[in-house]
Write a protein that binds this DNA or RNA. Structure first.
Lengths: 204, 204, 204, 204
DNA sequence: GGCTAATCGAGACGGTACGTCTGGTCTTGCG
DNA sequence: CGCAAGACCAGACGTACCGTCTCGATTAGCC
């Protein structure tokens, strides 16, 4: 009686092919590493993914959209660093910033970072989304760690955790952009200087 | 020594047209502001400069080369900031970083920064040159100011001026890239934190 | 009488939908008149017939096959002329050729003739079938009428009725093809000349 | 002296490549013979002509336009028959109609005729032009020959030479279209019947 | 002022990739 | 299992630029 053709029992003539979708995303990731974002072509993508152009245009509409999906789905080297927190803020920051720098120093890290930067420069809206997606976990980690430091009395109460996170992200991105990875010394100097700047007893 | 215009030196049958050259560079600058680096086409450049494609290819060889020359010749908003040095390091850094941030916050500053970033991501070699050309004066200014601070006993002896300069450049670039200019508060926070981090007498 | 759905006629799990079939054929006829054979697309046909592409491909396999069936089933203007035979050969030929010309002069007649010609040029096998189907009645009529004329002593014994029929068909087709319908004067001239050529007492 | 820069001495930056033009026309002629008009693609043409698509689109704008030029320039088998006129009308007509039929019976003649028919059915305007171009010489020849016959007293004064020419053209076209060349017997029968129909002294 | 040679504009050329369209096949779920 | 719906692969369409290549016209410096 209540019956069995609920309005959500809609027509699903043929579902989107998950295989085709993954092939395209994989092809995009491969192409990025191979030649950078600008060198990626939809036709090349279609061919190397074994997919027709129409299938790509049906679902994505632009190169940037594919990149976006590829990044949002896949893991991004250097961005997913999860560093365990110890009781020593300096140790933790050093470990985390070192890991991020190292991730962005590897060839595929540089290629990916450049692709991200290019697409952000070219497509503002997508850039914001990607940045948010990649920066958010970092900001979160830093915020959490700084809060703990504050609780432990190591850190001034007026420091802006987001600003610190953004500073690190900016530095790592810039290094990848110009192709000169941050040296361990530079990492060390930056962390030490930061610690001095946010230490609890500093003036003013 | 004896002389230097041998009869076989029949060079300079016709000098390069300076007018054509400037037209192209101007067209490039205009096109960058209008639609970003990727949207610039050689054909469009040729047309809006009233110049033939061949003339462009004869002298430049690539879009990036034109951009390079356009930037090296012209002024770059946000990069040419020349701030007078006072006796107060904090005042000077604040003034300078504010000026740079403001320059990059204006629409044409953002467009230019994005173009720079795009071309750097796409053409590594040119990117290095441009970065050097634009970053060098900044590094110089910062180095000089920090040296004075050190001499005046305001600044620790172990701070790395280049690292500081790069940090500021990276932050300003990143802000332009994601289209979210640095707020005055963020500028203030960054400068204050930096000062604490480099102040003479801080530990360790 | 009693009626006829015996239980043993369950051999055919589900019969082909006659409605869908007719929709497609109707859509084909409509599309032909609207834009010519080449402008017909299977997708357009499917849509305007309210039928899925697969249904068309399941039963026909090609545009030409649909056209073939559409023409074999439907009536063809100018081809189905049935003119009563009188005792006067000239009157009959005039009447018949005029009717055929007039049929092919009307807009839908021209469109259909063109479609036929196109499909014949493109698909030889189907073209032969269609030509046979459409020309046969004509040849029959002409043969019969000429035979009567011969019997009546009006017509030479060596005339080739099929050749005459083909000549008329060719002339009418050609006129439709180039879009210049045969004028009544041209029809008259042709018939008169033919009659002279086949008249019983002519030499050699 | 009087002057030397006449306004018609216009800029001719680089003349159109005659070689490319001929390659395309040749490729079109070859493709027509190979697979018929509908099977010709611009891309295939470009490739087999060793020419870029853009070059084709620059000059022609449509497949039909290329065909038109190809036919207007090249020789058309069966259409260019030039038969010497003797004093015997029957001999001449027989010779000419045989030659035309034979030309259209050869494979390339059939292919070309079909292509012509297809394009005429599909593109009315071009069809008219092509028909005029190909039919005109035939009509001329027939008209001239009939006029001579009339002058010699062999032919009735009221015959319409154009009608006769069109009849032959229609018959030959139709034969090519359905792929059944006119047999020598059919040719003979047609000529003989025609001669009887137009002979001077026939009634009415 | 005439000669010479590289410049300039214009734009045709062979190409690559674009984004769109249609053809013909395959894959769902409903009836 | 027929059918509507529509996703799929394939490939042609016509367009936009690419970077190279003629062209005739222009022009700066040396005779």
């Amino acid at each position: 009686m209540f019956q069995c053709t609920p309005e959500y029992a809609r027509k699903v003539p043929r579902p989107r092919s998950e295989k085709a979708r993954q092939s395209v995303l994989d092809a995009m990731r491969a192409a990025l590493s191979a030649g950078g974002y600008e060198a990626v072509t939809i036709e090349g993508l279609a061919e190397s993914a074994g997919v027709s152009k129409q299938t790509i245009y049906r679902w994505w509409g632009s190169k940037a959209a594919i990149l976006g999906e590829a990044l949002v789905e896949g893991s991004v080297p250097g961005a997913d660093v999860a560093v365990p927190m110890t009781s020593d803020l300096g140790v933790d920051l050093r470990a985390w910033f070192s890991a991020m720098s190292a991730g962005l120093a590897r060839p595929e890290g540089v290629a990916l970072a450049r692709a991200l930067i290019e697409v952000t420069a070219a497509d503002h809206a997508l850039g914001l989304v990607l940045n948010e997606r990649l920066a958010a976990p970092i900001r979160e980690w830093v915020t959490e760690r700084v809060a703990r430091g504050r609780a432990a009395g190591d850190v001034r109460s007026d420091v802006d955790a987001a600003a610190i996170a953004d500073q690190f992200i900016a530095m790592a991105s810039y290094a990848a952009l110009i192709g000169q990875p941050l040296s361990p010394e530079r990492v060390e100097e930056t962390v030490v200087r930061l610690l001095r700047g946010i230490a609890a007893g500093s003036r003013p």
